[in-house]
Design a protein around this nucleic acid. Structure first.
Length: 358
DNA sequence: CCAGACGTTGTT
DNA sequence: GTCTGG
DNA sequence: CCAGACGTTGTT
DNA sequence: GTCTGG
């Protein structure tokens, strides 16, 4: 989930918009230091917002807020491997429940390395003629036999929480530090659950939640934990052109609703299957004002902590159990070929796939 | 104590 | 960095 | 996340 | 089918 997103503003514009939303920016990358676009993929370098502690070390005084240029796909600083980006496991996302457990690679950074990824929206792919974009209890989605509509889920002015890792671990040939980040995912909310079982955690610009999340004086605690919730407000969801699939493509049309005749039928199926469109044919995504969000939030009133989480978190458990079981198995022997690991994961005997003729 | 692992998504 | 297994 | 490639020996 | 690169 959340393997592709959009942030097309040049760096200076990202900074300006954050400031307008009440998020101070003391420092920002040059426009040439990041890769703005409508098709941001893992490995790209993008603006990420974080707090730097003041001289005193912890609390209020002297904290600076900066936009940094970071690479998507987190590499911990303690990695001993050579600076090979692709050799490390896939860390473009971090499950919120992995953070709740007090172990694993995330514990080395959840206390001090929290940050915020800035995004206009993200993309979700619907699998070919297939209802389940993943997990067990997702409702059927009878959509697209061959041509897959893409849904673009717009966060417009919203941000997505994540970790940044000031990585001394990845060292380029120039001995330069590379900062990397990952995007935290949680259970999909009701609106998106027909598309996928996971969604990124989304926080409102300028919110107390973001300030709490970034506060350098705070180490990991249950308050931070409760910030990781499925999004409670409505998002804009609509199909977009399939060209977004190719990472080399980049176009503003990627965040414009797809409304061509050819795809009318698919779009109809898409929405009748459960995803609620907020608009289908307008020229550009609607931008919500902060006031609108706040009133919507008031309506929603319920404390974000329990109510929402409980109802949405019933699904993932069986799958999680499976995950830990298989990963234990797969990790028993260290140097195993990918094929062997996969076979072990499936609890099967590896197959011999090569042979000599004659 | 040291050595070794540390992940997610989606597939069946 | 921090936990688990030996 | 999807798209695209998927090999070796021996030559320049 | 499966891994790598973007």
């Amino acid at each position: 989930m959340c393997g592709r997103y959009a942030l097309a503003y040049p760096a200076h514009d990202v900074g300006r918009r954050l400031i307008e939303d009440g998020m101070p920016v003391d420092e920002a990358p040059g426009d040439g230091d990041v890769q703005p676009g409508y098709n941001i993929a893992p490995g790209h370098v993008e603006p990420v917002y974080r707090a730097i502690p003041g001289a005193a070390g912890g609390g209020g005084a002297g904290v600076r807020y900066v936009l940094g240029a970071m690479k998507w796909g987190l590499i911990p600083s303690w990695t001993k491997r050579s600076p090979d980006y692709s050799s490390f496991p896939k860390t473009i996302n971090c499950r919120d429940d992995s953070l709740f457990e007090n172990k694993g690679m995330w514990t080395s950074m959840k206390h001090k390395k929290r940050c915020i990824v800035v995004a206009q929206g993200f993309y979700e792919w619907l699998k070919k003629g297939n209802e389940k974009a993943g997990c067990p209890p997702s409702p059927p989605l009878s959509i697209c036999s061959s041509d897959n509509p893409r849904s673009h889920i717009s966060l417009s002015e919203k941000t997505t929480s994540c970790y940044a890792w000031p990585g001394s671990g990845i060292v380029s040939s120039t001995t330069e530090k590379v900062y990397t980040y990952t995007i935290i995912t949680t259970t999909a909310n009701k609106q998106l659950s027909s598309l996928h079982c996971r969604m990124p955690v989304i926080l409102e610009n300028g919110s107390a939640e973001i300030r709490a999340w970034l506060d350098p004086a705070t180490t990991w605690n249950t308050t931070l934990q409760t910030l990781l919730q499925p999004y409670r407000l409505e998002l804009e969801v609509y199909p977009v052109v399939k060209d977004v699939g190719n990472v080399r493509n980049n176009s503003p049309t990627f965040i414009v609703p797809l409304d061509s005749k050819d795809n009318k039928a698919n779009i109809k199926n898409f929405f009748t299957a459960g995803a609620k469109p907020t608009h289908v044919s307008s020229a550009a995504p609607i931008k919500r004002t902060r006031e609108e969000f706040e009133t919507a939030a008031e309506k929603d009133a319920s404390p974000p902590s329990k109510a929402v989480k409980m109802e949405d978190s019933e699904q993932p458990t069986p799958r999680m159990r499976m995950r830990s079981a298989t990963s234990n198995l797969a990790n028993k022997k260290s140097p195993a070929s990918p094929a062997v690991k996969r076979a072990v994961k499936r609890d099967q005997t590896p197959r011999i796939t090569s042979f000599f003729t004659k």
